[in-house]
Design a protein around this nucleic acid. Structure first.
Lengths: 353, 353
DNA sequence: CTCCGTTGCTAAATCGGGTTAGCGCCCGTT
DNA sequence: AACGGGCGCTAACCCGATTTAGCAACGGAG
């Protein structure tokens, strides 16, 4: 069907040298091994003219390295998170000439181990284990055979695996400071979690950490959270219900919503009560979901840096791979990626009463 | 670091036979080649006890097949489309024990050819060339070397590549019929494209086809489109602007928005004019973007079957791969995947005047 | 008793590269 | 002239599987 691939043997023959020599020249070890300029040129010319490209499968067999990393996540579709995270990972990998295998476990441990096997069978050089929402995960013991990095996840048991996560605590502080800097000191309510550190959805690391940050920043300014409503799931309908419930008994001046979908519901509830954002109530949120800039007024939110998370994970993975080659010890650092503030239109200065 | 992988040689030694014999038994050709029951059992037992798994890299070198397919798209992050499409592709691949390489071209032809090379270097068995919005693409000539399928795209030049696309024309008919069945015959306006077949954003196949379907279904019922507003880009802000513009001069009873983001803008404009959905104006749309079920009232829309598109593409690719092995001719069929209606709350019966 | 055909298995080549060990040749020394 | 040593290159083995060709042992026919 297709014209057979050009192999090293073809290049060697065209240059009139042995395969060994051709290999040495092309791997850049020609100088070191005293190949003459003349031969070097002939080999390079032949390779160029024949458009030679090494067969990575073959190299993989001999050297055990396939210039490939596996990206395994629990869910790739739910939430846009996945897309940008993979994009970041993809580009970081591409910078080093690596390709990405994608796999999805759907939270199924058996599927996960099958995937890990399939990746090992294909001799991946490293693994990214990603979660689509920040949480603690059980690390399958099989992964210790290969360099690996946790992305958006923390190990349940202590392991020597590095982890890359968004800096949620600082994000919480930032959200709070946005309101403080606008002069808000009273009537600040939380929607989605809180007010206590135990009032959070199960398993959600993000909820706890955001809450910690919020309370920290407010506390430093001597400001109290006026109240909070939790949501069983962080979806618009629950944000709507929680905010409605709040508005029946309270008169908030500002809301900190735990994510943008909740904020969307909050907008709807505020609208139902005839309250204007931001004139009557300021709203800040987290995630920077696309809807944040579609809402009216556009939502001020602390962004999840999906792209950077993906990039960082792969960058960290590369240092793990290098360390592995150098027989170094594993460490297991936790890398925090900053969450940037997207200032838009949903926060107004608090009018001094 | 890790205990060396178990190889075929290990299994052979444990079973007290040659590698050849072990290979024959494990590939199921034992019977055919007259291996005794006794030996067969010994090999299977050894393989099981040692937890032998064939090294796919090695198999790839020998047989040229790596049980891997490449998924190349122009953008993987923009729009949720990508996630579900990849998910479908992933699952279809997994059903046959295949893995997926992911690549993103960002519409850059050079990047595309680099990616194709990288995939060829890794001996992929087939390629999915995906576009994130339906359009015609230039097919790089390199792809003819491998079985390939176009996903959500049509070839600019006629090629023998099969294509998998959503059935947009039928979707257009369905959207129109939703309104017809609710009794709407007058005051139906289009937002995003139309009324003429030339009033569409550049390159957008979806716009043309949806429009064709809409006009066809309305025409059959003897109903005329009352008017239309185009949008330079299908984003909420343009939907808002276009609908506002319309409302200044007309009193629509129903809107067909060309996608859900436009519909979101349309909702905002209707709200500005004090019009209620669906009591005053019914709205139907396309895509079934997540926001469709977050809007109030929930949006009735004709869904892009992302997951099914991904699955179908890989299924078609497998028949291409099989055909390729059998030295068959390439055909280049176009496969249309139905777009299902999601009936929600944005359409009300037309009150007879 | 020899010859032949089957049965049951294995040696060896192969895929496309990387890597080690070492072979000739030329030059300079003594 | 014999010897040592550097230079420039290559033969041969290796990775882990598949596959082709063929070998030994045995039994039955002639």
């Amino acid at each position: 069907m297709s014209p057979r691939r050009v192999t090293l043997a073809d290049v060697a023959k065209a240059a009139g040298v042995s395969r060994t020599t051709a290999s040495l020249v092309l791997s850049g070890r020609g100088r070191e091994l005293r190949i003459s300029q003349d031969v070097e040129q002939r080999v390079l010319k032949a390779a160029d003219e024949l458009q030679y490209r090494p067969n990575i499968v073959s190299v993989g067999l001999r050297t055990g390295t396939t210039r490939t990393i596996g990206f395994i996540s629990d869910t790739i579709a739910t939430s846009r998170l996945a897309g940008d995270m993979i994009k970041g990972a993809l580009e970081a990998a591409r910078d080093r000439g690596f390709m990405l295998f994608i796999g999805e476990t759907e939270g199924d441990a058996e599927l996960e181990s099958l995937l890990l096997q399939a990746m090992h069978d294909r001799q991946v050089d490293g693994l990214v284990l990603a979660s689509m929402f920040t949480r603690t995960i059980k690390v399958p013991k099989t992964v210790t055979a290969t360099p690996a990095v946790l992305l958006n996840a923390l190990p349940e048991q202590p392991t020597p695996l590095p982890a890359v996560l968004p800096d949620e605590v600082e994000a919480g502080r930032r959200a709070a400071r946005i309101l403080l800097e606008a002069g808000h000191r009273d009537g600040i309510y939380l929607i989605g979690a809180g007010p206590g550190l135990r009032d959070v959805p199960a398993e959600s690391v993000a909820a706890v950490e955001r809450l910690v940050g919020i309370r920290e920043a407010l506390g430093e300014a001597g400001v109290e959270v006026a109240g909070a409503r939790t949501c069983p799931d962080w979806q618009p309908e629950y944000g709507l219900a929680a905010t409605r419930d709040l508005l029946h008994t309270a008169q908030p001046r500002a809301l900190i919503c735990f994510n943008d979908r909740i904020a969307m519901g909050a907008y709807q509830a505020l609208d139902d009560f005839g309250l204007k954002v931001p004139a009557d109530v300021s709203v800040v949120s987290f995630d920077d979901h696309p809807i944040a800039s579609w809402m009216r007024p556009k939502l001020t939110t602390v962004a999840l840096p999906h792209y950077e998370l993906g990039r960082k994970a792969v960058d960290v993975l590369f240092t793990e791979i290098d360390r592995d080659r150098a027989d170094g010890d594993r460490v297991g650092d936790v890398h925090r990626v900053p969450m940037p503030v997207r200032s838009r239109e949903s926060v107004a200065p608090s009018l001094l009463d």
